[in-house]
């Protein structure tokens, strides 16, 4: 299928004509044009170099689609993130192909991006907007969404796939995710129905839940019963002080706990109120971190696996 797409693209180039495919992508001699939150963006037909700006959803999508990643942001040691990245294996493979770190996460460096001479830039919309003109002077920019703006990773995956002619791969990834989700939903149907779950962030200032985070979205995809803390958050987020920990998550029979650093995880385990939570007492707890708040197909599948491990403990 990919080959036939390539053949079609070549034919288009040879004949110099333009066409609009079933996804709404216009393919011309200049490349493929897709409609994005920043307006129509035309991406070259052949892409040899892609740079990403944020390092989670954008990076995951580029790696999943097998695009030639050349530059990406990285988390510095000050974040203390201790768990292996969900995308670690794919990133290692990309590094072997020449991908390299360009700048610290949240410290976008335009000069470093320009030096990487990308054919395409993929980044979070909120990162792109303030520096749109500078980025567009370097290469076409495809903005992706976040958990805050309601744009799903599947929509963004399809957008980038349309822009890069990798639609088949995107549909395979989405289908694989759906199959795994359905399998987990069947296997753990009893636990899913009976056990309220919370996906919470823990740090020394307190705990919080947020509706649009990838973990919460995937729990909802599975039809999980979310704990009262999530109902308090509604479509937004809810924060709880350390003293409110037990009150907030007392009903949860299982917890996905996001603790970025080992210090925070150790503090959570030593925390007298956290230790009294029914889920902690039953050891129905799985640790994760902010790198699973957001992501694409690899991270989403990783979160599905974490949820399966969690239900195994219930």
């Amino acid at each position: 299928m990919r080959r036939s797409v390539a053949v079609l693209a070549s034919l288009s180039l040879l004949t110099g004509c333009s066409a609009t495919n079933e996804t709404g992508t216009a393919e011309t001699t200049a490349g493929r044009t897709v409609a994005t939150a920043l307006g129509d963006v035309t991406v070259p037909g052949a892409i040899d170099s892609v740079v990403v700006l944020e390092g989670r959803r954008d990076l995951d999508i580029v790696l999943s689609l097998g695009l030639p990643l050349t530059g990406y942001p990285y988390e510095g040691p000050e974040t203390g993130i201790a768990l292996e990245l969900p995308i670690a294996a794919a990133l290692t493979a990309a590094k072997a192909q020449g991908a390299r770190r360009l700048f610290l996460a949240d410290e976008i460096n335009i000069e470093a991006i320009a030096a990487a001479t990308p054919d395409l830039i993929v980044g979070r919309l909120e990162d792109v907007e303030p520096i749109k003109a500078q980025l567009q002077a370097i290469a076409p920019v495809i903005p992706v969404g976040t958990h805050d703006d309601g744009q799903t990773w599947q929509q963004d995956l399809r957008l980038v796939a349309d822009a890069t002619g990798t639609q088949t791969r995107a549909e395979e990834l989405i289908s694989a995710f759906d199959t795994r989700r359905d399998e987990i939903a069947r296997t753990y149907a009893t636990q899913i129905a009976a056990t309220p779950v919370a996906a919470l962030g823990y740090d020394l200032e307190g705990t919080e839940v947020e509706s649009g985070r990838l973990q919460t979205v995937i729990l909802e995809n599975l039809g999980a019963t979310l704990s009262a803390a999530h109902r308090t958050a509604g479509d937004d987020a809810a924060e709880f002080s350390p003293e409110q920990t037990l009150e907030a998550y007392r009903d949860a029979g299982a917890l996905l706990v996001m603790a970025d650093t080992d210090d925070e995880w150790a503090a959570a385990q030593k925390d007298a109120l956290f230790a009294q939570l029914p889920a902690m007492r039953a050891n129905a707890v799985i640790r994760t971190d902010k790198m699973t708040h957001e992501g694409g197909p690899i991270t989403a599948t990783h979160v599905l696996d974490l949820v399966a491990q969690l239900y195994d403990r219930v």
Partner: peptide, 12 residues
Amino acid sequence: AITVFGVATPAG
């Protein structure tokens, strides 16, 4: 301590 050693807690 924060930037080089990733320390993030009061005790640290």
